[in-house]
Nucleic acid binder design. Sequence first.
DNA 1: AACGTTGCCTACAACGTTGTAAAAAGCTAG
DNA 2: CTAGCTTTTTACAACGTTGTAGGCAACGTT
Lengths: 342, 342
Amino acid sequence: MRHRLKDVAELAGVSVKTVSNVVNGYIHVRPDTRARVLEAIAALDYRPNISARNLRRGRTGIIALAVPELDIPYFAELAKHVVSAAARHDWTVLIDQTNGDPEQERLVAAGIRDHMIDGLIFSPLALAGADLDAGATPLVLLGERVAHGQADHVAIDNVAAARDATGHLVGLGRRRIAAIGAQHTAEAATARLRLAGYSEALRAAGLARDEALIAPALAWHRADGAEAMRALLATGARPDAVVCFNDTLALGAMRALHDAGLRVPDDVAVAGFDDIEDGRFSMPTLTTVAPDKADLARIAVDLLAARLTATDPPPREQTVPHRLIPRESTTLSPHRDEPVGP
Amino acid sequence: MRHRLKDVAELAGVSVKTVSNVVNGYIHVRPDTRARVLEAIAALDYRPNISARNLRRGRTGIIALAVPELDIPYFAELAKHVVSAAARHDWTVLIDQTNGDPEQERLVAAGIRDHMIDGLIFSPLALAGADLDAGATPLVLLGERVAHGQADHVAIDNVAAARDATGHLVGLGRRRIAAIGAQHTAEAATARLRLAGYSEALRAAGLARDEALIAPALAWHRADGAEAMRALLATGARPDAVVCFNDTLALGAMRALHDAGLRVPDDVAVAGFDDIEDGRFSMPTLTTVAPDKADLARIAVDLLAARLTATDPPPREQTVPHRLIPRESTTLSPHRDEPVGP
DNA sequence: AACGTTGCCTACAACGTTGTAAAAAGCTAG
DNA sequence: CTAGCTTTTTACAACGTTGTAGGCAACGTT
């Protein structure tokens, strides 16, 4: 029931190679021959055997996207865009979940999929530097320049982004601005850069950076945000604004603020990063720094494409534009916050 | 730089087949031979060529998961579990996004990936019945029994689930219970069954089903939920509870209720389906019917595995357990709803 | 009429792996 | 020491595809 080029060739009365030529759109095939072949293909419902083709061609038409977890909204949204962008190159995307586990990330970087994929788009969480060099597979890294080897990088300007978010809060008159999501390991480039941008913005506004207002977060899930916010409040700190280093942290923080009886944004304004869907419908809606995710995905895929055609192109770094989207969590005016009867 | 069995064989001084035997864990290899081969493998950093192996073995070790969109939280969470479950069978998961587009779904069902995958787990949105039969690839469908062909089905008992959710609201003393998410096309089995369960619960409680309280929703995103809720309120309907047919609809509905100055749950209690992460941190947190997603994924993968080993097993149907998780959106007592100072 | 060009088609040999079948090497028991 | 085992290793032939090189017409040019 499953047919091969040979079967089609026999039915059409031509050679195997001619069928192959038709399938691959080779030009020099007489119209009537082509028609006969196409007819045979349709009659037998022939589909090329991908494995055989891959073996012969030396590529698979599959790229992998390695992310920590798919159910983190940012990565889910990113994955969606990567799949779309890859489709334009006729690539299929295979998802690798690292769970942010260093060992798992090392395996991915070392090329665990090797012969299975043509290239890899990798968003590392726990690894940086030399650990990421390695592999024979063309590699595009999402995030700051942390590796030195033959890999491209795509990211937003995190320092500027954090400066924008913090500056926005300063502009609203907030003075005791906390930060949630600091990480002090060497690998956590994103956290470091966002903290740097935050500090710069404070300095520019003539505000002192208060270490008591900087809360670390091991991971960046909602629960961590809630946790960090609660811890911060428990120290007696009374911020009038919080910059969270991503949206899920921010949503968690808002939850904790609510539980503590504090109003957002009246008592505490909250801003995040990533512009995930949830933040557009949360209560209040969440002010955020939005990276152009579609652009990010497109650039990553295109870089990979370039890396596949050219031989050993120099590592490139691309910055993706971002913009601040003010929403209720920083801008809602107090009088609208009270429920009014229907 | 990329080595083959042949290279390893030469280095180890054995035949190609012996190396292959070692790689595949064949038992009858003398320990010292095995050691020599393993050494050579390590020295050359040999990795099997997957395409060649696939060609020879006739399978790829890849299964596809076809879902509407990855950035819908339910599908993202599901994908995560499927990837994990598949890993236990040494399968890699490839993601197909259909965007809920009938044409795209037809292609997927017809086996667009055919030779590339060993099996397919498919969550159709727009298609049902004969459209889904087809394909030579083993198929497991997520959702109600809508196809007649050789496919397995995995789903929760949607009628019972909707009955539970509605019954919970009835039990809290609500009497004007609305439903959001109705769909009247033939394909929308899930919506139909949930509506049926809703009706049953009302009947059981001696409440009349009021068509004015039933709001359709074309899609089940947050925006659709908000939209439907607004439309419902605009008709002058004054429900004291809403059953939304999934969590994103519910989150959107809560947003619309908030905008209309109505309090959740004081004025309107809200329940959803799916138990997505967002609902555990939203304000208020969302009462929901939780399917066991890990179980669902595991069962789907196992069914596929069975379908791959046995020849043409009869189509099977599995029901996955669900449970109602009451949260603030239905249970929060009024006095706690008012903010208290820090 | 002989010659190169071009267009169309084909035979053959890979790509790297594993199943089959059979040879070689080791054993055990007579 | 050999017959009859079992264990270990091997050669060979696929799997289905495409690149290479070449053949044969049909054409236009000298």
